[in-house]
């Protein structure tokens, strides 16, 4: 375990911010370019995980355990969100026989 964690000692904090920003942007693009509701949902999960990684990096950087506890709560919240979100998608599929989000544009009225 010692030599694994020693490799990380040379990484600047900026590299973690950069990595998380890239993954978050990929999630944003994924929400915008796809029409499949499940893939959009997966892109949201990607964004959530990018933030989790950044919180952990900040927590380790500052030597404060609170950041990792926040990540734990975010994971519990993500599990609840996925359960409700997938139930809604299943209900939409049952009513419209499709998970194309363009079918849902009648919701805007």
């Amino acid at each position: 375990m010692e030599n694994i964690t020693n490799t990380i000692q040379t990484i600047p904090l900026n590299e973690y911010i950069l990595l998380s920003a890239i993954i978050f942007s990929i999630g944003v693009v994924g929400v915008l370019i796809r029409r499949n509701a499940i893939v959009i949902f997966m892109s949201v999960e990607l964004m959530l995980n990018a933030v989790n990684l950044l919180l952990t990096a900040f927590s380790v950087y500052h030597g404060d355990a609170s950041g990792q506890v926040f990540v734990f709560f975010i994971m519990a919240l993500a599990a609840a969100e996925v359960a409700v979100g997938l139930a809604i998608i299943v209900m939409v599929y049952r009513n419209t026989n499709s998970i194309d989000i363009n079918v849902l544009n009648r919701l805007k009225w």
């Binding site: 694994i4 964690t5 490799t7 990380i8 380790v60």
Partner: peptide
């Protein structure tokens, strides 16, 4: 997470 030594996470 393992590289950051956040083993629980």
């Amino acid at each position: 997470y393992i590289l950051l030594n956040a083993q629980f996470l």
